[in-house]
């Protein structure tokens, strides 16, 4: 167990193992997203109420899932970094933040676009969209704070503290926004209601969600490797490696 944790500490080991893992996740992500897209766009039946506009669900929901999961993963990485001083965890947290912000943006954009045919307006202060918007600001805060420090180590630790504070607040924000929404707009039509979906509708959604998660893992592995090259550029093994790469 200890040996394993010590291995995890070593960027060199991570660099080697991630090179082997990465292709599987890329293949899984590409296959799942492609099949999910074709199935969801062309083969899934249209919704009886929303028609074909409901197909936006196949990008909206996976992006929204990922937006929240990435923040939680980032906070977990922050805890690992702060408690065990494992640098890899911080590198992963650093590269997760922009992807999380991108996913939040996709969820917001697709939600707003979906709003036009369903609500007749680009933006509504819907509970889900509002908490997504706040999540986007939280991501911006973490990214900006990391960049604001002159020393990388201070920036890392400050961003870690903020990620932990943020992750404690996310459920509170989510529930308070939901409560606020029910207070002001009782019983509006929610976009992703808990109606029983037929298999042909939710199977592609499941594929898309899994595909997005694979994409997140693959991209995080890839960019963490870049981050290792950046931060460990003075190490002998990285320089030897660069000599071999073309």
């Amino acid at each position: 167990m200890w040996a394993f944790i010590n291995k995890l500490r070593s960027p060199r080991w991570f660099y080697a193992i991630s090179a082997r893992l990465q292709p599987y996740f890329w293949v899984a992500a590409t296959a799942l997203i492609l099949v999910g897209t074709v199935w969801g766009l062309a083969f899934a039946p249209a919704d009886y109420q929303q028609g074909n506009s409901f197909r936006i669900i196949y990008v909206h929901v996976p992006a929204a899932f990922l937006a929240q999961s990435i923040f939680v993963s980032m906070a977990v990485a922050a805890v690992v970094f702060m408690v065990w001083k494992i640098k890899i965890a911080d590198m992963a947290a650093a590269v997760m933040a922009p992807l999380g912000a991108a996913m939040t943006f996709i969820a917001l954009f697709s939600g707003a676009v979906w709003g036009v045919p369903t609500w007749g307006t680009w933006w509504m202060w819907d509970a889900r969209l509002t908490s997504m918007l706040i999540l986007l600001f939280l991501y911006f805060g973490v990214i900006a704070l990391r960049g604001a420090f002159a020393s990388r180590d201070s920036g890392s630790r400050a961003a870690s503290v903020l990620a932990m504070v943020g992750v404690i607040n996310i459920p509170i924000i989510k529930y308070s926004v939901e409560w606020w929404h029910t207070l002001h707009q009782p019983a509006t039509f929610t976009v992703t209601g808990r109606v029983a979906m037929p298999l042909e509708m939710w199977a592609p959604l499941l594929l898309m969600v899994l595909g997005f998660y694979s994409f997140f893992i693959a991209l995080t592995l890839m960019r963490t490797r870049n981050e290792i090259l950046r931060r460990e550029s003075r190490k002998r093994w990285v320089r030897d490696l660069a000599g071999g790469e073309h």
Binding site: G51, S53, S110, V116, N226, L229
Partner: peptide, 30 residues
């Protein structure tokens, strides 16, 4: 898309743009 083309396709286009963009960015960075 049953008259919903601009909405469905723009949501998909934005998603594709950001996903592919992040992959390209990671490759260029490397």
């Amino acid at each position: 898309m049953g008259g919903h083309a601009p909405y469905v396709w723009s949501a998909w286009a934005m998603t594709a743009l950001l996903l592919l963009g992040s992959v390209v960015h990671a490759r260029v960075e490397r």
